[in-house]
Design a protein around this nucleic acid. Structure first.
Lengths: 227, 227
DNA sequence: CGTCATCTTGAGTACGATCAAGAGGGGTGG
DNA sequence: CCACCCCTCTTGATCGTACTCAAGATGACG
């Protein structure tokens, strides 16, 4: 109930979403279903047939892929107001798992398709969402391919801080070190060490392992620099 | 004329493209313009206002971003039949530069928008293209975040081989070691060394620095494994 | 033939991974 | 209420992969 506040604290429903619900209802489609998932449970698994997309009402979800030897890459964390599955086709290319307890609304992809055909604003909204996701994914490629561990951590914390309404409020990390590591292409030990280094530099304050405060915005931005 | 054959040798125009041209013409839009770029020239730069998208008719283009200290990440290589700029909004998030001499067709994004509104198949085609690009970008995230240098090289060569029509034909690399390095998140020295290691293992044959033949498909697939 | 860019190869280094042990924190059951 | 267990996080020591710096080889072009 408190953890998921870290990601996407702002309460802005996606532009096309009201319309999605309205249109589905108007066209006689079943109402969007609300789901509750306990921490650790999956919204769907990689390889599942794509029939729905999901709107996250509260909590945080990780989208990830695991390869046979156990290595994992987390593609994105999705918090309140975020959409999952818009960019998928036929089969999901990743699993979506609840990082915290999650409430999500499930929509039929077919309804969205119909709505896009009928409504210009809806079509633009979905396109915009896809393009935003693509841009975010590219930014993460740059991070994974060309940044040092310290830069990765600094960028990550700044991104979390940026999503929060209050600029220099506490950041509550909903995810474990393992999640952070698999998102940034590091190990948990490196995440732990680099966070500690940032703390020793006076750049952040670690009230608890999951509670971070940025104490020197300029410095952490200088460390993240590449952006 | 011969180099770009390595990427996307197959001559399949994008599903929605004929329609794009047709529609633009039918709706009185100016005909799509054909551009010729010498090797090294840019189609557009990061930050340019987005007005067009491009269809690559021949040659290879790299989409990349450079940060202030010179580090570069190449997001994708685009060969014959590929589209550039569909996933962009307002301002391009990367530069597009000709790796070889390139011929491209320039289309107005506004025309595409109109066509998507009018035509169901067109809308689905563009969505599919965006989703494919998103899937490819995610695959590259996994590669950048979780793969060893050898695995990266093996995956890269297999991807190139997969795009070619003939399975075990020669792969002509249109890009330099530097391009490969910046695509895979490595240095040119590591690219050179790992290619040589693959050669010593008998997995590939390097006829010239830019001409590769896969001599042991099973082995190279085993090395790339994660996929 | 000379120049320049690219590629290769070598030697040493460093960053992050791995292996290992211990500390903290929350929840459950006695 | 306390003790215990488990999970996560931290910290330390060592290792290895890939980077850096440097020099030489190869090849294209004028």
């Amino acid at each position: 109930m408190q953890a998921q506040a870290a990601i996407a604290m702002v309460d802005r429903p996606h532009p096309f979403l009201r319309q999605a619900s309205t249109n589905a209802a108007a066209s006689g489609g079943r109402a969007a279903k609300e789901l509750r998932l306990a921490r650790g449970r999956a919204l769907f698994y990689e390889g599942d047939r794509v029939e729905h997309f999901y709107e996250i009402l509260s909590g945080t979800v990780r989208c990830c892929r695991i390869i046979h030897d156990g290595r994992r890459q987390i593609y994105r964390f999705v918090g309140q107001g975020g959409m999952i599955g818009l960019g998928c086709q036929d089969r999901y290319g990743y699993s979506a798992e609840a990082v915290t307890d999650v409430v999500a609304r499930r929509h039929r992809l077919a309804d969205l398709d119909a709505a896009m055909a009928a409504d210009d604003a809806m079509r633009r909204g979905v396109l915009q969402a896809l393009r935003d996701e693509l841009a975010a994914t590219r930014a993460q490629m740059l991070l994974l391919g060309r940044m040092s561990a310290a830069e990765k951590l600094a960028s990550f914390l700044l991104a979390l801080a940026g999503e929060s309404a209050d600029p220099d409020a506490c950041i509550e990390l909903p995810m474990t070190r393992s999640d952070i590591a698999d998102y940034l292409g590091l190990t948990i030990e490196t995440v732990s060490r680099k966070l500690n280094e940032l703390r020793l530099l006076g750049v952040i304050c670690l009230d608890t392992p999951t509670r971070v405060r940025i104490t020197d915005l300029d410095r952490i931005e200088a460390i993240a620099e590449a952006a």
